[in-house]
Amino acid sequence: MGNFDKKIARFWEVFLNQNGYTKVLTGLQNTLTIAVAGLVIGIVIGTVIAAIEVMPKYKRLPRILDGLCAFYVGLFRGTPIVVQLLVTYYVVLPLLGVNMPPVNVCILVFGLNSGAYVSEIMRGGILSVDPGQMEAGRAVGLSYTVTMMKIVVPQAVKNILPTLGNELIVLVKETSVVSFVGAADLYVAFSYIGSNNYEFMVPYLVMALIYIVLVMVIAMFVRIMERSLRKSDRRN
Protein backbone atom coordinates (compact mmCIF):
# COMPACT_ATOMS: atom_id res chain seq x y z
CA MET A 1 0.00 0.00 0.00
CA GLY A 2 3.08 2.25 0.13
CA ASN A 3 2.46 2.81 -3.52
CA PHE A 4 -1.04 4.11 -2.80
CA ASP A 5 0.25 6.55 -0.17
CA LYS A 6 2.58 7.97 -2.75
CA LYS A 7 -0.30 8.36 -5.18
CA ILE A 8 -2.31 10.25 -2.61
CA ALA A 9 0.61 12.50 -1.85
CA ARG A 10 1.01 13.32 -5.52
CA PHE A 11 -2.70 14.02 -5.80
CA TRP A 12 -2.58 16.47 -2.90
CA GLU A 13 0.43 18.14 -4.41
CA VAL A 14 -1.44 18.95 -7.63
CA PHE A 15 -4.72 19.58 -5.86
CA LEU A 16 -3.32 22.15 -3.43
CA ASN A 17 -0.25 23.63 -5.06
CA GLN A 18 -0.93 23.47 -8.78
CA ASN A 19 -4.38 25.05 -8.85
CA GLY A 20 -6.16 21.69 -8.77
CA TYR A 21 -8.65 22.83 -6.17
CA THR A 22 -9.78 25.91 -8.12
CA LYS A 23 -10.46 23.67 -11.10
CA VAL A 24 -12.42 21.29 -8.90
CA LEU A 25 -14.42 24.15 -7.43
CA THR A 26 -15.14 25.57 -10.89
CA GLY A 27 -16.13 22.09 -12.05
CA LEU A 28 -18.42 21.63 -9.07
CA GLN A 29 -19.96 25.03 -9.64
CA ASN A 30 -20.55 24.33 -13.34
CA THR A 31 -22.02 20.92 -12.59
CA LEU A 32 -24.49 22.36 -10.10
CA THR A 33 -25.30 25.40 -12.23
CA ILE A 34 -26.06 23.29 -15.26
CA ALA A 35 -28.14 20.81 -13.28
CA VAL A 36 -30.14 23.36 -11.27
CA ALA A 37 -30.66 25.90 -14.07
CA GLY A 38 -31.46 23.02 -16.42
CA LEU A 39 -34.08 21.73 -14.01
CA VAL A 40 -35.65 25.18 -13.60
CA ILE A 41 -35.92 25.59 -17.37
CA GLY A 42 -37.15 22.01 -17.56
CA ILE A 43 -39.91 22.67 -15.03
CA VAL A 44 -41.14 25.71 -16.97
CA ILE A 45 -41.12 23.88 -20.31
CA GLY A 46 -42.47 20.69 -18.77
CA THR A 47 -45.38 22.50 -17.11
CA VAL A 48 -46.39 24.19 -20.36
CA ILE A 49 -46.19 20.91 -22.30
CA ALA A 50 -48.11 18.99 -19.65
CA ALA A 51 -50.82 21.66 -19.51
CA ILE A 52 -51.19 21.40 -23.29
CA GLU A 53 -51.25 17.61 -23.19
CA VAL A 54 -54.09 17.43 -20.70
CA MET A 55 -56.18 20.07 -22.52
CA PRO A 56 -59.48 18.88 -23.97
CA LYS A 57 -58.87 18.18 -27.63
CA TYR A 58 -62.00 19.09 -29.57
CA LYS A 59 -60.64 22.33 -30.99
CA ARG A 60 -57.96 22.44 -33.64
CA LEU A 61 -55.37 24.59 -31.86
CA PRO A 62 -54.86 22.25 -28.89
CA ARG A 63 -54.48 19.35 -31.32
CA ILE A 64 -51.77 21.14 -33.29
CA LEU A 65 -49.97 22.18 -30.10
CA ASP A 66 -50.29 18.64 -28.81
CA GLY A 67 -48.62 17.32 -31.97
CA LEU A 68 -45.76 19.77 -31.57
CA CYS A 69 -45.30 18.74 -27.96
CA ALA A 70 -45.30 15.06 -28.84
CA PHE A 71 -42.61 15.75 -31.46
CA TYR A 72 -40.52 17.70 -28.97
CA VAL A 73 -40.77 15.06 -26.25
CA GLY A 74 -40.04 12.28 -28.73
CA LEU A 75 -36.99 14.13 -30.05
CA PHE A 76 -35.41 14.79 -26.67
CA ARG A 77 -36.25 11.47 -25.10
CA GLY A 78 -35.29 9.53 -28.21
CA THR A 79 -31.69 10.73 -28.47
CA PRO A 80 -28.76 10.57 -26.03
CA ILE A 81 -27.98 13.81 -24.25
CA VAL A 82 -24.41 13.72 -25.60
CA VAL A 83 -25.78 13.77 -29.13
CA GLN A 84 -28.08 16.67 -28.24
CA LEU A 85 -25.13 18.61 -26.82
CA LEU A 86 -22.93 17.95 -29.84
CA VAL A 87 -25.61 18.73 -32.38
CA THR A 88 -26.60 21.94 -30.60
CA TYR A 89 -23.04 23.11 -30.11
CA TYR A 90 -21.53 22.10 -33.45
CA VAL A 91 -24.55 22.17 -35.79
CA VAL A 92 -27.55 24.19 -34.67
CA LEU A 93 -25.88 27.19 -33.03
CA PRO A 94 -23.27 27.71 -35.80
CA LEU A 95 -26.04 27.48 -38.40
CA LEU A 96 -28.00 30.12 -36.51
CA GLY A 97 -24.83 32.18 -36.20
CA VAL A 98 -25.13 32.22 -32.40
CA ASN A 99 -22.02 32.25 -30.25
CA MET A 100 -22.50 31.03 -26.70
CA PRO A 101 -20.14 29.97 -23.94
CA PRO A 102 -20.16 26.17 -23.47
CA VAL A 103 -21.74 26.29 -20.01
CA ASN A 104 -24.70 28.29 -21.34
CA VAL A 105 -25.12 25.83 -24.18
CA CYS A 106 -25.18 23.04 -21.62
CA ILE A 107 -27.80 24.85 -19.51
CA LEU A 108 -29.92 25.30 -22.62
CA VAL A 109 -29.64 21.68 -23.74
CA PHE A 110 -30.13 20.25 -20.26
CA GLY A 111 -33.15 22.51 -19.84
CA LEU A 112 -34.67 21.39 -23.14
CA ASN A 113 -33.86 17.78 -22.37
CA SER A 114 -35.27 17.78 -18.86
CA GLY A 115 -38.33 19.69 -20.14
CA ALA A 116 -39.22 16.53 -22.05
CA TYR A 117 -38.87 14.36 -18.95
CA VAL A 118 -40.46 16.82 -16.54
CA SER A 119 -43.47 17.11 -18.85
CA GLU A 120 -44.20 13.42 -18.22
CA ILE A 121 -43.76 13.84 -14.47
CA MET A 122 -45.89 16.99 -14.49
CA ARG A 123 -48.60 15.34 -16.56
CA GLY A 124 -48.80 12.56 -14.00
CA GLY A 125 -48.98 15.21 -11.29
CA ILE A 126 -51.77 17.09 -13.03
CA LEU A 127 -53.74 13.90 -13.65
CA SER A 128 -53.38 13.01 -9.97
CA VAL A 129 -55.25 16.18 -8.98
CA ASP A 130 -58.96 15.57 -8.41
CA PRO A 131 -60.86 16.66 -11.58
CA GLY A 132 -63.35 18.32 -9.23
CA GLN A 133 -60.76 21.06 -8.67
CA MET A 134 -60.83 22.04 -12.33
CA GLU A 135 -64.62 21.83 -12.41
CA ALA A 136 -64.95 24.05 -9.35
CA GLY A 137 -62.66 26.64 -10.94
CA ARG A 138 -64.60 26.58 -14.19
CA ALA A 139 -67.91 26.74 -12.33
CA VAL A 140 -67.00 30.06 -10.69
CA GLY A 141 -66.20 31.51 -14.10
CA LEU A 142 -62.42 31.14 -14.23
CA SER A 143 -60.95 30.12 -17.57
CA TYR A 144 -59.25 26.79 -18.19
CA THR A 145 -55.80 28.39 -18.20
CA VAL A 146 -56.35 30.42 -15.04
CA THR A 147 -57.74 27.43 -13.15
CA MET A 148 -54.85 25.31 -14.40
CA MET A 149 -52.23 27.78 -13.23
CA LYS A 150 -53.82 28.88 -9.94
CA ILE A 151 -55.41 25.67 -8.72
CA VAL A 152 -54.31 22.51 -10.51
CA VAL A 153 -50.60 23.07 -11.18
CA PRO A 154 -49.76 24.17 -7.61
CA GLN A 155 -51.34 20.98 -6.28
CA ALA A 156 -49.63 18.91 -8.97
CA VAL A 157 -46.24 20.43 -8.13
CA LYS A 158 -46.74 19.59 -4.49
CA ASN A 159 -47.49 15.98 -5.41
CA ILE A 160 -44.42 15.62 -7.62
CA LEU A 161 -41.81 17.58 -5.63
CA PRO A 162 -40.01 14.40 -4.54
CA THR A 163 -39.93 13.15 -8.12
CA LEU A 164 -38.52 16.49 -9.24
CA GLY A 165 -35.80 16.03 -6.63
CA ASN A 166 -34.93 12.72 -8.26
CA GLU A 167 -34.85 14.46 -11.63
CA LEU A 168 -32.25 16.83 -10.17
CA ILE A 169 -30.14 13.83 -9.17
CA VAL A 170 -30.42 12.44 -12.69
CA LEU A 171 -29.33 15.80 -14.11
CA VAL A 172 -26.35 16.08 -11.75
CA LYS A 173 -25.15 12.68 -12.91
CA GLU A 174 -25.75 13.43 -16.58
CA THR A 175 -23.70 16.64 -16.43
CA SER A 176 -20.64 14.39 -16.46
CA VAL A 177 -20.73 14.54 -20.27
CA VAL A 178 -20.60 18.32 -20.68
CA SER A 179 -16.88 18.27 -21.41
CA PHE A 180 -17.84 16.95 -24.87
CA VAL A 181 -18.58 20.56 -25.78
CA GLY A 182 -15.77 22.06 -23.71
CA ALA A 183 -17.57 22.94 -20.48
CA ALA A 184 -15.29 22.56 -17.46
CA ASP A 185 -16.93 20.14 -15.04
CA LEU A 186 -15.59 17.77 -12.41
CA TYR A 187 -14.32 15.36 -15.05
CA VAL A 188 -12.23 18.10 -16.64
CA ALA A 189 -10.85 19.16 -13.26
CA PHE A 190 -9.79 15.68 -12.19
CA SER A 191 -8.44 14.79 -15.60
CA TYR A 192 -6.26 17.86 -15.31
CA ILE A 193 -4.96 16.68 -11.95
CA GLY A 194 -4.48 13.17 -13.28
CA SER A 195 -2.59 14.15 -16.38
CA ASN A 196 -0.39 16.54 -14.44
CA ASN A 197 1.22 13.70 -12.51
CA TYR A 198 0.43 10.76 -14.81
CA GLU A 199 -1.70 9.16 -12.11
CA PHE A 200 -5.45 8.75 -12.55
CA MET A 201 -6.41 6.30 -9.84
CA VAL A 202 -6.79 8.73 -6.94
CA PRO A 203 -8.27 11.67 -8.89
CA TYR A 204 -11.05 9.56 -10.39
CA LEU A 205 -11.68 7.90 -7.05
CA VAL A 206 -12.13 11.33 -5.45
CA MET A 207 -14.35 12.39 -8.34
CA ALA A 208 -16.56 9.37 -7.76
CA LEU A 209 -16.77 10.20 -4.06
CA ILE A 210 -17.79 13.79 -4.79
CA TYR A 211 -20.62 12.60 -7.05
CA ILE A 212 -21.78 10.14 -4.42
CA VAL A 213 -21.81 12.80 -1.70
CA LEU A 214 -23.59 15.26 -4.01
CA VAL A 215 -26.31 12.75 -4.80
CA MET A 216 -26.69 11.77 -1.16
CA VAL A 217 -27.04 15.38 -0.06
CA ILE A 218 -29.74 16.07 -2.67
CA ALA A 219 -31.53 12.84 -1.75
CA MET A 220 -31.50 13.94 1.88
CA PHE A 221 -33.04 17.30 0.96
CA VAL A 222 -35.71 15.50 -1.02
CA ARG A 223 -36.55 13.32 1.96
CA ILE A 224 -36.74 16.30 4.32
CA MET A 225 -38.97 18.09 1.84
CA GLU A 226 -41.22 15.08 1.50
CA ARG A 227 -41.62 14.83 5.25
CA SER A 228 -42.42 18.52 5.72
CA LEU A 229 -44.93 18.33 2.88
CA ARG A 230 -46.68 15.44 4.49
CA LYS A 231 -46.85 17.47 7.68
CA SER A 232 -48.42 20.45 5.91
CA ASP A 233 -51.20 18.18 4.75
CA ARG A 234 -52.29 17.89 8.35
CA ARG A 235 -51.57 21.48 9.33
CA ASN A 236 -54.24 23.30 11.39
Binding site: D130, Q133, A136
Partner: peptide
Protein backbone atom coordinates in the same frame (compact mmCIF):
# COMPACT_ATOMS: atom_id res chain seq x y z
CA UNK B 1 -68.90 30.68 -21.35
CA UNK B 2 -66.69 32.00 -18.54
CA UNK B 3 -68.55 35.31 -18.49
CA UNK B 4 -71.97 33.65 -18.19
CA UNK B 5 -70.83 31.11 -15.61
CA UNK B 6 -70.04 33.96 -13.22
CA UNK B 7 -73.78 34.45 -12.83
CA UNK B 8 -74.47 30.77 -12.17
CA UNK B 9 -73.18 29.33 -8.94
CA UNK B 10 -72.64 25.60 -8.59
CA UNK B 11 -72.36 23.44 -5.51
CA UNK B 12 -70.96 19.93 -5.86
CA UNK B 13 -71.61 16.73 -3.99
CA UNK B 14 -67.91 16.45 -3.15
CA UNK B 15 -67.62 20.17 -2.14
CA UNK B 16 -64.57 20.68 -4.40
CA UNK B 17 -63.00 23.41 -2.32
CA UNK B 18 -59.63 24.49 -3.70
CA UNK B 19 -57.23 22.42 -1.61
CA UNK B 20 -54.27 24.75 -2.07
CA UNK B 21 -56.19 27.80 -0.84
Amino acid sequence: INIHRRHMGMVFQQFNLFNNK
